[in-house]
Design a protein around this nucleic acid. Structure first.
Length: 874
RNA sequence: GGGAGUUUAGCUCAGUUGGUUCAGAGCACCUGCCUUACAAGCAGGGGGUCACUGGUUCGACCCCAGUAACUCCCACCA
């Protein structure tokens, strides 16, 4: 069969993925082998594949494929997250397009639509992951709202409630007036905005004077319940304890004092609106101030504001400024840049709002979760994230777990008509409990809490719940696969996901959820900007796959992404990956093009090449083991890349390549095929498709065999000396090639090489036959004296001579030799300086001194050699 | 404002307890080659005051102090 000169991934990748999937090669079930487990960070069910996913999932696939080939029972559990806000927003939008308003629907009807949407459009991303080559066990795909996972969440809520860790309370939360829900601190993004600072005058009661405050939100004065100054502020000593009037509505409020006020800022006089600012709220608590909430949930003003009722907060802001100016209450308006919190989902400005929410106490759970990381029971790669983690865990605040949404796990709390509550798994159970307290109650009298739980309240159970380990703590899967081994995640969810999974694991399994956390960098564009949908600077991963093949893109993602480092993405990296696949493909073409000559004996150079490459591959395997142990995946890829491209293609294959027109001996051919096979195995975790294709081309395979199920080659004892000998031969070869290039001696023209003996022990003859083969020598001869009138060069301290077919440029030769002489003398000087230094000789360890002495001897010898050469030329 | 981290070749990064002239890799670049596996290639080559300043040491990319620039996290000053 003729192989095309260019490797074409498109059809092959599809073919092999189908082959793996239909033969269930990704599947895993508990058995006697050691498990190796990864749970995927579940992408949002609404999600589509972006570059971050590409990076993250490529790494996971590399890890899982390698372990699978190393004989572990490898399981990669896929799945999606119900993503309550994101999905609900999407469904609401979809319904709006159909002319349906969420507010017109019952909860049940809305959820029906949502599920319908999920079944139809959700999980596209899981299909896309297949294109990447992800070897997930798809039969175990989980969704955080699957019945088992849903129930697990409810069980956990009830359990934590019973343990006293969950409570309900009124707190200041981040309110999203568009999505109409509380969001967590992590879901608020701050952006700088050009706004204005308004200086407003409040009349002092009983005086003709005013006091001026500064605010960025003039509409909130309608909720003011105090004005506050710093107790040390001389300017305001006289007004302390007096009353002032809120402009327009003329409510009387006190002037209080608190150290909190910054005397430098604005006028040094702060208005206090406890209902609409977290700091004001805290001051309000401290000073027992009334809290007037002037806003409706949707951000419009309510009747407590007295003015602008029903108008949006931003409309009200504009109107109140006009009115305040009219009434003479505006002292001045300055331009001002401030940071404003926006909802990550709806992008609406967040409103600090007092509301009744559910909270989970964090302090108790954080302590052991911090300990396991501090003690490296859970290891972070890179370790620097321990610092960030510690900082957060030590300052952890209670977690607001309720959300005013419908899509999600509804809080299992039932209220009686008298507002007392019962926590129960179902309404029926709640009713039974209620009956014990109150006999004449009907089940309809109970109503369930309207809120759902924060999405992360289900995600934090993921490593347990995918195995149904909450509901059935002793089931076979959870006992076998838990704790999982590696978690691969982005740094931005270190707290709200990774930290909480550790807490949940320790709480519900009394064991960590994973041993290692590999934290990826952020994918950025060439300008260093984070890739994002809104910037439109992210290439579509599927386009890239189409262009370069999944293997090419995988290599592109991995080449420059050491753990924790940002990845400045550049398409040329994918090109490099594609070129690599093509290179391998052509190596296959070369080997497949050879005619095996059964009668031919193995040439010596091929036997020597075997020795060299066998050792080289061995050393690389050992290196790979170390790199994987340290999660240095980029480096591991580069090690494999160089082993294949440089050592295998550029050296080994070039050495054994039979002369034109000749066949290759069977022994060498088989050795080459075996080497190639091993290389493909080593590369397979990085480039699964091309390696599978080549693996099937190299030898006859059955239709159920796959490289992904083959056993990874292992390392044996290494022999560095052999590799150094080869390096020496390679240096000689390079020197001869350079000589040919400089002197214009074509490779076709055969030359002779003379080596001067006795000068040192490094002139090793192990690879002579290879030197001769690659540089087209007719002979290599060892001589005692220098060869007059020949071209020469020095490698280490040995002189080599090549009788020149043409005349040579003596001046140029001399110049080169003199430069080398000068360099060597400089080197000798630096060595002598050390050795003549009394303190070095006495202070440095003996072996270091010896080394320096050997360097001095070698340098002296080399200088003698060069000087002799110069003399002979002159 | 508090904390953490980074700074080595044009770019992206290695450099493991201070010790070979140890300053490395890949890509990019330069030169010569369409040599029957591959121009998505082959051969050869150039390139860095290791951010800056000082200190410790016989010896510093490495340890210490200070300076500068950048990045991230936390807080959210009206």
């Amino acid at each position: 069969m003729q192989l095309a000169p260019k490797y074409d991934p498109s059809t092959l990748e599809e073919k092999w993925y189908k082959f793996w999937e239909t033969n269930q090669m990704f599947a895993s079930n508990p058995d006697e082998r050691t498990p190796y487990t990864i749970v995927i960070p579940p992408p949002n069910v609404t999600g589509v594949l972006h570059m971050g996913h590409m990076l993250n999932n490529t790494i996971q696939d590399v890890l899982i494929r390698r372990k699978r080939m190393q004989g572990f029972n490898a399981l990669w559990v896929p799945g999606t997250d119900h993503a309550s806000i994101a999905t609900e927003t999407k469904v609401v939008t979809m319904l709006k397009e159909k002319g349906i308003k969420k507010t017109d629907l019952t909860r049940e009807k809305f959820l029906e639509y949502a599920w319908e949407w999920k079944e139809k459009h959700g999980g596209i991303i899981l299909q896309q992951l297949r294109k990447l080559g992800a070897s997930c066990d798809w039969s175990r795909t989980r969704f955080t709202m699957d019945e088992a996972l849903y129930e697990s969440v409810i069980d956990v809520f009830i359990d934590l409630y019973n343990k006293g860790l969950i409570y309900r309370g009124v707190r200041m939360v981040n309110w999203d007036p568009v999505a109409l829900t509380a969001v967590s601190d992590e879901e608020v993004i701050y952006e700088e905005q050009q706004s204005k600072l308004y200086y407003l005058k409040y009349k002092i009661v009983g005086e003709d004077n005013f006091v001026t405050i500064a605010t960025t939100r003039p509409e909130t004065i309608l909720g003011d319940t105090a004005v506050c100054v710093n107790p040390n502020d001389e300017r305001y000593k006289d007004i302390q304890g007096k009353k002032v009037l809120v402009p327009l509505i003329n409510r009387e409020i006190p002037v209080i004092v608190d150290e909190y006020v910054d005397m430098e800022f604005g006028t040094g006089c702060l208005k206090i609106t406890p209902a609409h600012d977290i700091n004001d709220y805290n001051i309000g608590l401290k000073h027992n101030l009334e809290s007037i909430d002037i806003l409706n949930d949707n951000g419009t003003l309510n009747e407590k504001a007295q003015l602008y009722i029903g108008k949006d907060r931003f409309v009200a802001r504009e109107e109140i400024v006009v009115d305040l100016e009219k009434s003479g209450h505006v002292a001045k308006i300055e331009p001002y840049i401030n940071k404003i919190g926006l909802s990550e989902r709806s992008h609406a400005p967040i409103e600090p709002k007092l509301s009744l929410q559910w909270f989970l106490k964090m302090k108790e759970m954080a302590k052991p979760a911090l300990d396991v990381v501090e003690n490296d029971i859970v290891k972070f790669h890179p370790a620097k994230f321990k610092n960030t983690y510690r900082h957060w865990m030590e300052n952890v605040k209670d977690w607001c777990i309720s959300r005013q949404l419908w899509w999600g796990q509804q809080i299992p709390v039932y209220y009686l008509p008298d507002n007392s509550m019962i926590v129960a798994k179902s309404k029926e159970e709640a009713y039974q409990k209620a009956l014990e307290l109150n006999c004449n109650l009907k089940i309809e009298d109970l109503h369930q809490d309207e809120d759902v739980l924060d999405t992360w309240f289900s995600s934090w159970l993921w490593p347990i719940s995918v195995f149904d380990g909450i509901r059935f703590p002793d089931n076979e899967d959870i006992k076998y696969y838990y704790p999982t081994n590696d978690l691969v995640s982005a740094p931005d969810i270190l707290f709200f996901w990774i930290a909480r999974m550790i807490m949940a694991g320790l709480e519900y399994r009394k064991d960590i959820p994973f041993h290692n956390v590999y934290i990826t960098g952020v994918v950025r564009d060439k300008q260093g900007r984070k890739m994002s949908k809104s910037l439109g600077n992210s290439p579509d991963p599927l386009d890239l796959i189409e262009k370069y093949g999944a293997d090419g893109v995988r290599v592109g993602m991995l080449l420059t992404s050491p753990a924790g480092n940002d990845l400045p993405f550049d398409e040329v990296l994918c090109e490099q990956g594609r070129n690599f696949a093509n290179k391998i493909w052509n190596a296959l073409r070369l080997i497949k093009g050879w005619n095996v000559d059964e009668n031919k004996n193995q040439p010596e150079y091929s036997a020597k090449a075997f020795d060299f490459f066998d050792e080289k591959i061995n050393a690389s395997i050992s290196q790979l083991d170390n790199q994987f142990k340290d999660y240095r995946i980029s480096e591991a890829l580069m090690t494999t890349y160089k082993l294949i491209w440089d050592d295998f293609c550029s050296w080994y294959l070039e050495i054994i390549k039979p002369p034109y027109g000749e066949g290759i001996d069977a022994k060498t051919y088989n050795q080459a095929v075996d080497f190639f096979e091993k290389l493909m195995q080593l590369l397979h975790p990085f480039m699964p498709f091309v390696t599978e294709e080549i693996w099937h081309n190299l030898k006859v395979r059955t239709d159920k065999e796959s490289i992904m199920l083959s056993l990874m080659p292992e390392t044996k004892e290494t022999n560095d000396a052999l590799l150094r000998k080869f390096d020496y031969a390679a240096d000689v070869i390079t020197a001869i090639r350079t000589l040919r290039l400089e002197k214009n001696i074509p490779l076709k023209e055969q030359i002779s090489l003379f080596i001067k003996k006795n000068h040192n022990e490094q002139a090793d003859i192990t690879f002579d036959s290879i030197i001769a083969k690659l540089t087209n020598l007719d002979k290599i001869e060892y001589i005692d004296e220098k060869l007059e009138g020949a071209l020469s060069f020095i490698v280490a301290t040995t002189e080599f001579y090549v009788p020149a077919p043409s005349s040579i440029d003596i001046e140029a030769e001399l110049e080169k030799l003199r430069a080398e002489l000068e360099y060597t003398k400089g080197f000798l000087d630096s060595v002598n300086k050390k050795l003549n230094n009394e303190r070095f000789v006495s202070g440095a360890p003996a072996n270091v001194v010896e080394l320096e002495q050997k360097k001095r001897d070698d340098a002296n010898k080399k200088i003698a050699v060069i000087e002799e050469q110069i003399r002979s030329l002159m």
